[in-house]
């Protein structure tokens, strides 16, 4: 038996509330993050990701307190991300009880951060999140929630992150995110072939077939989704039973 493919609900948190955007704008409310995470855990989610999308200093404190509550109440692993710029942020969130941290723009601006996190806490806590978009120049990485293009090609950056010790790559295709038309399976498959660390697919889940395809065609180790779970368009127990019937190894 191999490792189970993971289903990961992602909760975007602003001012202590879960929100989810479509193509990174138009935020909608979707509930209390701790209660929602607990419900997902009980339904069979394999991990949770909490992203702090609050920009303010005050919001960061609220988020850290929420991380402590999540750690106290939920018995499955969870990753936190958003606004992690330096080792002090990593330490604060791990001390609050997070199992992993997800770094995105900060890693591109200062790739040494990946080495530092890995050296101090082990590669298993370091998730490198990448937002990328397919352009005429190929897959290009973006900063700041998809607002600023970089010179990095997706596959080069993912390889660099892996060599610096990243434990996992969380790849969001900006073109697929919020569109509910399936994950970027071609790029996922290439990432999986080229890298020796787990790949988490993100952006594009709209129906259960999309999860299957992310695992079979995209060769992902995990699939992350938000709105299809938050708005109860897909229920995790039924999704997992269906995936199992489709021959995917999932934890039931």
């Amino acid at each position: 038996m191999a490792l189970a493919k993971r289903i990961i609900p992602c909760l975007d948190v602003k001012n202590g509330q879960t929100v989810k955007g479509t193509n990174f704008v138009n935020l909608r409310q979707a509930g209390d993050p701790v209660a929602l995470g607990k419900a997902y855990s009980e339904q069979g989610a394999d991990e949770l990701v909490y992203l702090d999308i609050t920009a303010s200093h005050e919001g960061r404190k609220t988020f850290t307190e929420m991380v402590q509550r999540v750690a106290a109440e939920i018995s499955i692993p969870f990753t936190v991300g958003g606004g992690i710029n330096e080792m002090a942020d990593v330490e604060r969130l791990l001390n609050a009880g997070a199992d992993k941290v997800s770094i995105n723009s900060a890693a591109i601006r200062n790739p040494q951060l990946i080495n530092d996190i890995t050296k101090h806490f082990g590669s298993q806590v370091c998730v490198v999140a990448i937002d990328a978009k397919k352009t005429e120049k190929g897959w290009i990485c973006f900063l700041n929630g998809g607002r600023i293009p970089t010179a990095w090609n997706l596959f080069d950056w993912a390889k660099e992150a892996c060599e610096r010790g990243a434990g996992e790559i969380l790849f969001t295709s900006m073109d697929h995110d919020g569109v509910k038309n399936g994950y970027a399976n071609e790029a996922l498959s290439r990432l999986s072939d080229e890298l020796s660390i787990p790949i988490i697919a993100s952006g594009g889940a709209g129906k259960r077939e999309h999860f299957r395809d992310a695992f079979t065609i995209g060769k992902s180790d995990a699939a992350l989704a938000a709105s299809v779970f938050h708005f109860e368009e897909i229920a995790i127990p039924e999704l997992k039973l269906w995936l199992k019937a489709e021959g995917i190894n999932v934890r039931i």
Binding site: L3, A4, Q124, I197, P198, A222
Partner: peptide, 13 residues
């Protein structure tokens, strides 16, 4: 094999 990644991380039986 390429698909056997180390660390062994995740849910197993």
């Amino acid at each position: 094999r390429h698909e056997d990644k180390v660390p062994h991380m995740g849910w197993n039986t």
